[in-house]
């Protein structure tokens, strides 16, 4: 085939024609309902804990622990990835996504040993979130401090 340009032209045409359209509405709906459901459930937990006499911050911290525990358990049982496959951002954005990323990495790399496997790779997915999450909150903190000085 001497005419690669012709091959490329036919490829670009065929690729554009055959490109599947991502089901945005279906994904959006699933993310909205599941993500929203997780938030409603978390709020229910906070209200319940408050009714037991906890302060708001105590109840909120306990709720986080409960949601992380449930996520970790579902991940270990091999169920969370099936939920995540449907829910997408709905389970990935709340703290469930963070917990899942750490537990799944820990399970995954246990095969390479406790130190270099599990220890070295547990934060493989969550690591970037921590690095840039902490860095950006630090930057925002400084900006806020300077704002307070001026105001």
């Amino acid at each position: 085939m001497d005419d690669k340009a012709k091959l490329r032209e036919s490829f670009e045409k065929a690729a554009a024609k055959n490109a599947p359209k991502p089901p945005y509405f279906k994904h959006g709906f699933a993310a909205f309902t599941v993500g929203g459901g997780i938030c409603v459930f978390a709020q229910f937990l906070i209200n319940t804990f408050q009714s037991f006499g906890m302060t708001y911050s105590e109840a909120s911290a306990t709720e986080t622990i409960v949601v992380i525990f449930i996520t970790g358990l579902l991940t270990a049982l091999g169920l969370f990835d099936r939920i995540g496959r449907v829910a997408g951002a709905g389970t990935f954005v709340p703290i469930t996504g963070f917990a899942n990323s750490i537990v799944s990495s820990a399970i995954e790399f246990k095969a390479e040993g406790w130190i270099f496997g599990l220890g070295g790779n547990m934060f493989k997915v969550a690591g970037p979130v921590l690095v840039y999450g902490i860095t950006s909150s630090w930057v925002v903190g400084i900006v806020y401090y300077l704002y307070l000085l001026v105001a």
């Binding site: 994904h27 537990v103 995954e108």
Partner: peptide, 17 residues
């Protein structure tokens, strides 16, 4: 999956392709 993509139990969505 382990070598090229994400941990098996990570709840991520696959692309349409």
């Amino acid at each position: 999956e382990r070598q090229y993509r994400n941990p098996l139990e990570l709840g991520s969505q696959s692309k349409a392709t």
